[in-house]
Nucleic acid binder design. Structure first.
Lengths: 225, 225
DNA sequence: AATTGTGAAACACTTCACAGCC
DNA sequence: GGCTGTGAAGTGTTTCACAATT
């Protein structure tokens, strides 16, 4: 499942915001390969979105390209970083250091310097005091101290469903405004707090629809593609 | 990032299909607690979607409720399983047994009996021959044999970006029709194959927009909520 | 000649409002 | 009276088509 909710400025489609990091990923890759200019058509090829959509998405924030030429990869990636708020390091909390949480922490800490997991919280006394890639695992009791101290505004929740609501409430209490929720439960948060849900079971189950839909269509003798 | 693509029957909104497993999760929970009847309003409360949306989503597939009463949790959950193709066990492959793949495999194997990871593939010789929760890790070379043998039609890809396209192509070659892609790359697949992308870096980065958007609005003196 | 930026049209999805049924 | 099912209205998003610019 996936659904966002919370304060929205109104003008910029949510769907567009969610595509920006995809453009950024491609732009960074191009930059690294010293490709200075890219067209919306080329970005389309590399992202899977249409070139019109890419151009329109970008114009919600300004005019970044040069007609007849394209976009400078350096300029555009800097602009996108700024729009996303990634022009400075964004500290984040991870709550739940199970398999999934650990995988996320490793992945994030090693790869990126923009959104940075600076606090990992878990209730398991066996885990508290250990660390993941140099970031110490703290007791959840420390959350109220560490989150404000580190200026943390976003959090990733990977605790079991039963514990998720309490953690969310406590995080919001101390200033968290955006939550990436991997627990299979609907979090209740005050207005103004943005929640993005990713439930892996639900992803797998909805995928099943498309394989069985394929089967059904075959049974009916229709063609696909 | 998230985007589906591939064969669609046309009539049923993608967005609706993606909500069905959420309804199913709640229905299963209610059933377990021996609650026999539920209204769309109550489902709305528990899922975060509106009651009208829930009713409309369900009517794409038929009329499952009783006016003035509600929906029988047992009947509806059985119907939803059938619609999703979960009325029989759905075998799936997992390609990539790194941190994320291992977390997913554990989670899935322990919790669910509907979509079932029956084959785990990895190239690391240190991992091949070991197992995760009883499911053996095989060499990717075995993929062409095992996928058809086990009737696998869906796969989860958690390999690095460089290897993802090759794995996807090989999976499709031997009959995979739906892919859950965690690698940060755009997979090229033939028409009729459904790809759902989840890129965790991109989720974190788009989340950053909402915390910094909040900051920007505050700076402008507007209220939120 | 090429490619962006953008109103307008088309399409998709959600919400409204109420008829229909228990 | 209460709740589902559903056309119609409303909103959001994507695509079209072309003028503007280099």
């Amino acid at each position: 499942m996936r659904s966002g909710r919370g304060a929205r400025s109104g003008r910029v489609p949510d769907a567009a915001v969610r595509r920006l990091p995809v453009y950024l990923r491609v732009l960074e890759d191009l930059r690294q390969r010293e490709i200075d200019i890219v067209s919306s058509a080329e970005l389309a090829r590399r992202t899977g979105f249409s070139s019109e959509q890419i151009r329109k998405d970008l114009t919600y924030f300004g005019a970044f390209g040069t007609r007849g030429v394209g976009y400078r990869t350096e300029t555009l990636s800097i602009q996108l970083r700024e729009i996303l708020g990634l022009d400075r390091e964004v500290p984040a909390a991870l709550v739940g250091a199970g398999n999934l949480g650990t995988a996320l922490a490793r992945y994030n800490i090693l790869r990126h310097r923009d959104v940075r997991i600076v606090g990992i919280f878990d209730n398991d006394p066996q885990k508290v005091g250990t660390s993941i890639e140099g970031v110490p695992i703290l007791a959840t009791d420390d959350l109220e101290k560490v989150v404000p101290e580190q200026g943390i505004r976003m959090a990733v929740i990977t605790v079991p469903a039963e514990a998720a609501q309490e953690m969310a409430s406590r995080l919001v209490q101390v200033g968290v405004e955006a939550i990436l929720n991997f627990s299979p439960t609907q979090l209740r948060v005050p207005p103004g707090v943005y929640v993005q849900n990713i439930d892996l079971s639900i992803e797998l189950r909805s995928l099943a629809y498309y394989v069985s839909a394929g089967r059904r269509q075959e049974d009916m003798g229709s063609t696909r593609g």
